[in-house]
Amino acid sequence: MTESQAGDTPVSRAREAELALADPAYREAVVDLLGVLSYGEISAFERLAEDAKLAPTLEDKVAIAQMAAGELGRVERLHGRLRELGADPFVAMAPFGAAIDQFHEHTAPSDWYEGLVKAFVGDGLADDFYREIAAYLDAGTRELVLSSLEEGPHAAFVVDRVRAAIARDHRLGGRLALWGRRLMGEALIQAQSVAAEREALSALLAGGVDRPGLDLAALGRMFARLTERHTERMSELGLDA
């Protein structure tokens, strides 16, 4: 789908969505995307709630709990849209459990700081991938997806805690830099697995007669953007990518 033009109205956007969703393959892709986002939010909530146990102070524990609550708070809007499309949210989420759970199993943090870096870098990589997919959606669905991926105010909390810890112990910075590289590799594997295993999402990226898709060159540029944004996030934390 092309980007909405400045003169678009709610009526024209609704018509755009109606026409797009009349295509069964496109509708299936939207259901898949909303399903994986929903499961990802729930999984992030569970993981952050678990990470709160590692918090060194009560203030840190509360901050992580608030981050977890923010993840869970986005789920209802995604589920509401799935129901509007006539889909069962829990059926839509089910196919993505294995890939996302495997990512979290492979990247279980060993301490508080690895958990913080994962919350900022690992989740950020996955979100960036879904933002790339959102470019191929109708305007209304795209806005819902992008709003569910917005970074909350607690990102600054993570940056502050990690930078302060590195300033106290420079050896920690080297360990966390290696951890960030591992997260990058695992997140890309997860993203590729999700796209490859779901034909509807692959078809969405491939394009169609009414919209452009990603050829090999464009796919390469997409992964270059993901890598660049990862590098920026690592830099924000004071780490080398």
Score class of each variant (00 low, 15 high):
R77I: 04
A17S: 13
S148W: 02
R77D: 06
A99W: 01
E59F: 10
L226F: 03
A165C: 12
R27L: 04
K61L: 09
R161L: 07
D210W: 14
L216W: 08
P56V: 09
A139C: 13
H170F: 03
A20Q: 01
L226S: 00
G86K: 07
Q66R: 06
D138K: 06
A68N: 02
A217F: 13
A217C: 10
L21E: 04
V75F: 09
A217R: 15
L226D: 00
L54K: 09
T9R: 04
H106V: 12
L201R: 02
A224H: 12
G115M: 06
A135D: 12
L201M: 02
E186R: 15
L178D: 12
P153F: 01
G152K: 14
E41P: 00
D169T: 05
L137R: 02
L85A: 08
F96W: 12
A155E: 14
G180Y: 02
R181P: 08
A167Q: 11
L37I: 01
R198L: 14
L72V: 07
A203M: 09
L125N: 15
S110K: 07
R83A: 15
A187Y: 02
D60Y: 05
R161C: 11
M1E: 04
R15G: 11
T227F: 10
E3G: 07
S110G: 11
A196I: 02
R74G: 03
L78K: 12
A218F: 06
D169K: 04
A241V: 13
V158T: 12
F223I: 11
P109H: 08
V194D: 01
R15S: 13
G238P: 13
D169A: 02
I100R: 01
A6L: 15
V36N: 01
L204G: 05
A187H: 04
F223K: 06
G213V: 09
L237E: 04
A126C: 12
G238D: 02
G173S: 06
S147I: 05
G207V: 13
E228L: 15
H106G: 13
A156V: 10
R131G: 05
H170P: 10
D8V: 08
R13G: 01
D101M: 10
A139P: 00
E199Y: 10
G7T: 05
R81C: 00
L137A: 09
L78A: 07
A200S: 12
A44I: 00
A164L: 13
L72W: 10
V145K: 03
E199L: 14
E150V: 13
T57H: 08
R131D: 04
D240G: 09
A94C: 07
D60W: 03
G173R: 11
A6G: 08
Q66K: 12
L144E: 02
Q192D: 13
D32Y: 03
V91C: 06
G73F: 11
E236D: 15
L37E: 01
T2W: 05
L216M: 12
Y130D: 08
G152S: 13
R131M: 01
R211S: 11
G97C: 04
R15F: 02
F96H: 01
A191F: 11
R161G: 03
R77N: 10
A52P: 05
A22C: 11
A14G: 13
Y113V: 00
R233K: 13
R181S: 10
A6H: 14
S38C: 08
K53C: 03
D169L: 14
R211D: 08
A165M: 09
A20W: 00
F129V: 08
T141F: 00
A164N: 15
K53F: 05
Q66S: 05
R225A: 13
